[in-house]
Amino acid sequence: MPVTQTENGPAWHLRTPRARLALWAGWFALVALTVWCWQIMTKDTIWLFVMDAPQQAADIGSRMFPPRLSYIEKLLWPLWDTLNIATLGTMLGVIIATPVAFLAARNTTPSLLVARPIALFIIVASRSINSLIWALLLVSILGPGLLAGIIAIALRSIGFVGKLLYEAIEETDASQTEAIEATGASGGQVLIYGYWPQIAPAFWGISVFRWDINIRESAVLGLVGAGGLGLQLQASLNVLAWPQVTTILLVILATVVFSEWVSAKVRHAII
């Protein structure tokens, strides 16, 4: 009832007086909470350390520069590993995520009471665990190496791809699939003629986007022993070889820029 009667005729406000008061109280509470949290946060801070942070940063910075570019030679093979982990992991993840998405989507699931909750659980479980954690688990199960990295990336990708894909499936136009059904097509044919053309752009967009993210993630998986650039990063950090660390960071940056460029191109081409 934002419309109120006054002597000069009806007046209109976006919110009722009560809603305005509640909104103001909400903002006030938020500010109060921020102030309180700030106090707790700074209670245990040793300010002496914070004071000389600029010097520390400058010190590390000066050691990191100039980068040791000759080290790149030794990085090419791990870089290749990293790209492979990301690409194979994404492919495996997408292959598993696609049927899961069809089971999870309300309009294509074979059973709302059994299949859908299971598919949703798979998606949530995969999403709730970071790929670094997956890698940590898998390295202790499978031993260190590329395989652990690939599977870790795949497991994390299932949730991401599955969730976005099942939302795309639920947003499809029902009349198009109804028309295919009306021709006497089987369930599988309705899937490939009715649903697939509608979700194909989303499918390729999501896959390439996830591949792009996975390149970044696979670059650090080596920190826990799952192969790739991260392994070199850890080795260099351990011996405080800062110029090498800079070189590795530059290589990762270049790779990410490259993958970003590829994914932008692919998405542009399909839409």
Binding site: A182, Q198, A200
Partner: peptide, 24 residues
């Protein structure tokens, strides 16, 4: 069956849409 908003599969070609009548 013929539909109100045509209900063609928008991203398929005209030929594919006509041939989808043969799916059965």
């Amino acid at each position: 069956m013929i539909f109100q908003e045509y209900a063609l599969v928008e991203r398929l070609t005209v030929m594919e849409n006509v041939l989808s009548g043969r799916l059965g």
